[in-house]
Amino acid sequence: MTFIEKTTDHRKLRRWEGNIEADYIYTSGLAGERFFTELRKNGRILATHCPRCDLTYLPPRMYCERCLAELRDWKEVPATGRVEAFTVARLDEEGHEAPEPQVWAFIKFPGIHGGFVHIVAAPEEKVKRGLEVRPRLKPQPLRTGEITDIEAFEPAEH
């Protein structure tokens, strides 16, 4: 077993380039359909509630993570959330220094289990845990029923 001879001339080493081509549709499902339709049409953010566990899920889902019950109660999420954790991303998608740093946060809402992980449109010095933020939506005609309909979160005092 194993190699008796090995090469030491790296000019002789060959390689080929290729890729995996794969296209998908991502079906948003029952919960996603209702959430994104409401977001697009009326600019409202909805969550689903488990009466057994008393948890209101955001993003909404059709089953409870804890007790696995089917969830059929929909509730509106309060307009203002708070920054729970945040970071300043200074590298771009290729791992190089980004031209502009971007603040990301995990945003929680009162009474909601979950929240949003999203971009905060505010100077980094301004972002602290507890900062009150609101979603900034695209104008209704430009909304497409996707998570990007929320452009970013802004400090609520705006």
Binding site: A89, L91, D92, T148
Partner: peptide
């Protein structure tokens, strides 16, 4: 999450 783009290590920062 993915449609918001960004280098995924923002998750580690958070």
């Amino acid at each position: 999450n993915k449609p918001l783009r960004g280098h995924p290590f923002y998750v580690a920062g958070l």
